[in-house]
Design a protein around this nucleic acid. Structure first.
Lengths: 349, 349
DNA sequence: GTAGTCGCGA
DNA sequence: TCGCGACTAC
C-alpha cells in the first residue's frame, strides 16, 4: 500500500509538465525509499529519470515495492484539477488498478478526490551506467534554458564545448550561426575529482591533479549497473524518427522490476553531498566548470529545450559530458531530482 | 428609437463573450425597461436569458418596444473594435435595419462609429416558468468555473448533488473519476424559504421549518408564464442534437413585450433583496447551500463550462436545482443579469 | 498573451 | 472538402 502526502501539488504538476511531452506512459516505481520513474522518450533518443525521495514528502508510506503504470497525459489532466498549493495525497492499494489522488485546499473547505486508472507498462527500466564524466558544468537553470531556446531559433542542434575557456554553445543554422560562451565564475573552474572526494572540489583545486573522471554530484538513486547488464542504449539522434521497435529490451522490462540495486558501493552516500551542493549549486548564479579534458559534443536542441522545462523545479542545472556517451542534464530540487540523458549526434553533423 | 449609452463597452464585450458560443443569432428586445435577450442554444438544450436594466445605463431611452435581430458573431467583431473603457452608445431608429454603435474614448479624443446590419429573427422568446427550486447553492463564480473546467478534463458530464454535507460535483471519465466537495461556509447552510421571506434565510434558520421551495434570489424580469402558455421546453441533453422547430412560440415573442408580470405577487420585491444579496452573495467567498431536500442531477459539462464564461461579469454564481427541471445558473451584475437554464441529462447517464 | 495544430461542424 | 473553433505550446 502506498500513501504519499505532498505539501504542494504544484511540485508534481511541474514535474509532469517537464516530462509529459517526452514520455507518454511510465511506471512510478514506489518503494519505501521513495518514488522513481524512468523512461525513454518515444523515439528512444533520450532518457528521463525522476526520483522523489520519501523524506521529501510530508508523509510517506510504501509497504512494499510497487510499480504504478501511469499514463502521463491522464495524470496531467488529473493534476490540473489541483491548485498548486493544495495538499496532495497519492494513494494506491496493493495490486490496485487505480491511483487515488486527494487534494485538500489550504483552508480545507474544499476536498477533491480523483481516481485514475493505472495501466500495465512493460518497464523499460534500464540500468544506467554510472559514468564518470570528463566535464561538468553547473549553471543557473534559467541560463541554460535561455541558451538552448535562443539557439533553437537558429538551428537544429548545438555543439557544447567545455574547455579551459569555459563552456561554449554553438549552433549553426540556415540563416544564422550563433554561439554563447559562459566563462566560469571566479575560481569556479577546475578539474574534477572522483566522487569520494568530490565534497571539496569547489574552486579550491589544490590537489586536484589526479586525472580522475567526474561523477555527477548527486544523490544517486538511478539504477546503475556496474555489471552493465541491460545497460541503457540511446539512439544517436540523427533525425531518425522511424518507430524502431521500442520493445527490444524485454529482458529487462518483463513488466516488473528485477531492480538490480547497485553492486558497487559508491551508490548513495549523499546527505553530505547534498549540503555541499546547496553551497555551490543552488545559492548563486555562478557558472562552475570542471573538466579533465576538452570535450565537444553535439546534441539536438529540440530535446534540450524540452529538458529545460525543468527549470521551474530547480535553480541550478548540471551538465555532465564525456566523449561519445550521453549527456546528462541533472536538476536537483528539494526532495528529489530529475535527470535527462541524451545521446550525442554522431559525426558532429 | 433606441439610444442606450453604456459607461463601459467592456461590459457588453464580456456579455457577448459569454454567450456568443452558445447562440449565434438573437433578438435584443428593447423596451423602456431595458434590454432583454433570450435564446436557446443551437441544439435547444440550454437557454440563455440576459437582462440589462435601463437604470444600468448611463443614459437610456427607448420610445417603444423594438426587437433588434443581431448576429452575435458580427456584434462580437464590432465590439472588438471598442476598448473596454470606452463609452459605448447603441442607437437604432424605429424600423431600422442597422444598429449604430459609437465608441468614445475616455478622453474623448477618439470617436469610432460602427453600423451593424440587423436581421429578422423569428423570436423564440419563450415563457420561462417561475420554478421554485428544491436546492440553491451560491458560491464564488470562479470556484464554479474551476470545478467545471477541472471535471471537464475527465468526462462529459457532472453529477451535482446537494445534501446536508454541502454540494458535490462528480464526474466519471475514461481515464479517471473525480469529485469535488464544497462544504457550506460556517452558518451558510439551511433550508430555503419562499421568496417573500428570503431576506433572512442566511444561516439563521429559525422558523425555516416550512417546507417551501426556493426561488432564485434575484430581481425577476424574465418573461414568466404562470399560465404556462408557451413555456419553454429544453431538450433533455442526451446527445440528441436534432433540430426541432424552435419557432412555435410566436405569441410571446412577437417582438414586443406583452410581459405578463407575474400573477402571483412574489415577483419583484427586490431592491431589498439586492442589498441582501450584496451581503451574502457578492462580498465574500463563502459557499451558501440552501436545500429542502437532497437533490442529485446530471448535466453536460460542455454547457456548464460555457456558462461559466460569465464569471467575468459577476463574482458570485447561483445554482438552482430541482429534480427533473432545468438547472438555473444565474450571474447577477450591476445593472442586469445573465441566466442559463440547462436540462438535466436523463437516466443519470 | 499570441501563434500553431488538431478536431468538429457546415 | 473547407472553415471555424478549441486546445496546447511557445
Amino acid at each position: 500500500m502506498l500513501e504519499a502526502k505532498l505539501q504542494e501539488a504544484g511540485t508534481l504538476k511541474k514535474l509532469l509538465d517537464a516530462i509529459k511531452e517526452l514520455v507518454t506512459d511510465a511506471n512510478f516505481e514506489c518503494t519505501e525509499e521513495g518514488i522513481n520513474l524512468q523512461a525513454m522518450d518515444n523515439s528512444h533518443v533520450a532518457l528521463v529519470a525522476v526520483h522523489l525521495e520519501a523524506a521529501g514528502f510530508k508523509k510517506f508510506r510504501c509497504d512494499r515495492p510497487m510499480p504504478l503504470g501511469v499514463n502521463l497525459t491522464s495524470l496531467t489532466k488529473v493534476l490540473k484539477c489541483a491548485k498548486d498549493d493544495d495538499l496532495c495525497t497519492l494513494k494506491a492499494a496493493d495490486e490496485a488498478d487505480v491511483l487515488n489522488l486527494v487534494y485538500e485546499a489550504k483552508n480545507s473547505d474544499r476536498i477533491a478526490e480523483y481516481d485514475m486508472k493505472l495501466m500495465d507498462i512493460d518497464a523499460d527500466q534500464l540500468g544506467i551506467p554510472e559514468t564518470e564524466y570528463e566535464a561538468r558544468v553547473i549553471m543557473p537553470a534559467t541560463e541554460f534554458l535561455r541558451i538552448v531556446r535562443d539557439l533553437s531559433l537558429l538551428g537544429e542542434s548545438v555543439r557544447i564545448e567545455v574547455s579551459k575557456e569555459g563552456v561554449r554553445f554553438t549552433s549553426e543554422g540556415e540563416a544564422a550561426n550563433g554561439n554563447v560562451l559562459l566563462k566560469p565564475s571566479e575560481g569556479k573552474i577546475g578539474k574534477v575529482k572522483p566522487k569520494s572526494e568530490s565534497d571539496d572540489e569547489d574552486g579550491d583545486e589544490e590537489g586536484s591533479s589526479k586525472k580522475t573522471k567526474i561523477k555527477e554530484e548527486k544523490d544517486d538513486d538511478v539504477e546503475m549497473d556496474e555489471e552493465q547488464e541491460q545497460e541503457f542504449k540511446l539512439n544517436s539522434d540523427d533525425e531518425g524518427e522511424e518507430e524502431q521497435g521500442a520493445e527490444d529490451e524485454d529482458e529487462e522490462g518483463g513488466g516488473s522490476k528485477k531492480r538490480k540495486k547497485k553492486a558497487n558501493g559508491s551508490s548513495k552516500p549523499n546527505k553530505k553531498a547534498k549540503t555541499k551542493k546547496a553551497e555551490k549549486n543552488e545559492d548563486d548564479d555562478s557558472v562552475v566548470v570542471d573538466m579533465n579534458q576538452h570535450v565537444s559534443l553535439t546534441f539536438s536542441l529540440k530535446y534540450l529545450v524540452n529538458f529545460s522545462k525543468s527549470s521551474s523545479l530547480a535553480k541550478r542545472v548540471q551538465l555532465m559530458m564525456s566523449s561519445d556517451v550521453p549527456l546528462l542534464v541533472a536538476y536537483d530540487f528539494d526532495g528529489g531530482y530529475i535527470r535527462y540523458y541524451l545521446a550525442p549526434k554522431i559525426g558532429d553533423e
